[in-house]
Design a binder for these strands. Structure first.
Lengths: 193, 193
DNA sequence: CGTCTATTTGAATGTACTCAAAAGCGGTGG
DNA sequence: CCACCGCTTTTGAGTACATTCAAATAGACG
């Protein structure tokens, strides 16, 4: 997507005036990322809220055994970032890296708060954004606690056909909470039947 | 908790005027629930957003095999409800029942929207409420995809010591996505060591 | 005290994991 | 254009974690 499309989309979803929109783009910082480049690393201070214009970003962390766990994949017109680090003022628990060449806008906590305070349209937009994200997260939790690995995979493909093509299998496996080896075996089994 | 305490807490968290608060309590419907009584059943229409004044409510659903899956436990001063059903206007996917005698306030979608539109303090409050809920949900997802059953249980006890005492084990097991039998075996093992 | 439900226990089973090795694939340089 | 390198995916054998089913025990409540 191009800046104009992002702007248009944002304007519509948040019901913004042109002045609101200008203000927003004055506050954010634009950044391009190459494939595999990190936007944020675990432990970074002062991390920002991220609006993705194009490409694909993965949020993840590594456990004690250095195993990667994918928390979220974000594509164009998605917000991402470690909300806990941003709003509760501590260093980032997660890393964010580009799985494809990407373009993003960064919004600091201060500007985010300022935006909400001065522009009710943004407050309402973010309220609805978080509300919808919450619904999605709840559905993911339900899949986590009640689906088998096979069901989780089939659901993932159904919900995210584009990501299925773009994201390395090992990250999809880790997103679902299974090992890449087991996902490979699952796919073979599904292809046979 | 009593109504006055809930009111005080809400007033403080949402930074409300007394007028805002009065308006809120004029809009909501009060309801008492006995232990094991259902507030909402799967398939109910026109479900409401729920503020818990006292007691404990469980949100859950049953899968094809009639197995119960606990999605959430709510205690006093918590909001609960099937957000997807409320905001996307369809029948409830989940049931909500009282695990202890409870008192709640019900807010309809219309009144919720109205509250947000007319009272910016509520919009801001719900934005922050959803924001924090999102952070919690993300942490739960991380536990789901990266913790063993034992780690999940120890974390549950740490995060929710009161629920550990109040909620039947089988529901705690289902909240974590394991069987009650296995949780029982886990506890035995932990008690031995 | 009796009934109903929740929890525990055990044996057998299945799902998913670990580890190690082979195969596949994409990019880079000769 | 091919050969090589590094990384991802596949495969297989052995194992561990968690489930199922059935039965026994324990607890809660009228």
């Amino acid at each position: 997507m191009k800046k104009e499309e992002i702007a248009e989309d944002l304007k519509e979803k948040a019901d913004l005036t042109s002045a609101d929109l200008d203000y927003f783009f004055k506050k954010v910082e634009f950044k391009s990322l190459q494939k595999n480049e990190h936007l944020i690393r675990t432990g970074d201070q002062n991390v920002h809220f991220v609006l993705i214009q194009s490409g694909c970003l993965m949020t993840y962390f590594k456990d004690q055994n250095e195993h990667v766990h994918a928390i979220q994949f974000g594509q164009e017109m998605w917000w991402t970032g470690d909300l806990d680090a941003i709003f509760n003022q501590h260093q980032s628990n997660y890393a964010i890296k580009a799985l494809a060449p990407s373009e993003v806008y960064l919004l600091s906590k201060e500007d985010f708060e300022d935006l909400n305070k001065k522009h009710p349209a943004f407050e309402s937009y973010f309220r609805r954004l978080f509300q919808n994200a919450l619904i999605s997260h709840q559905k993911r939790i339900i899949r986590n606690i009640s689906f088998s690995a096979e069901e989780k995979y089939l659901e993932f493909v159904k919900l995210h056909p584009r990501l299925e093509l773009l994201v390395p299998q090992k990250y999809i496996a880790s997103y679902m909470g299974i090992t890449p080896e087991f996902l490979s075996k699952l796919k073979r089994k599904l292809a046979q039947s």
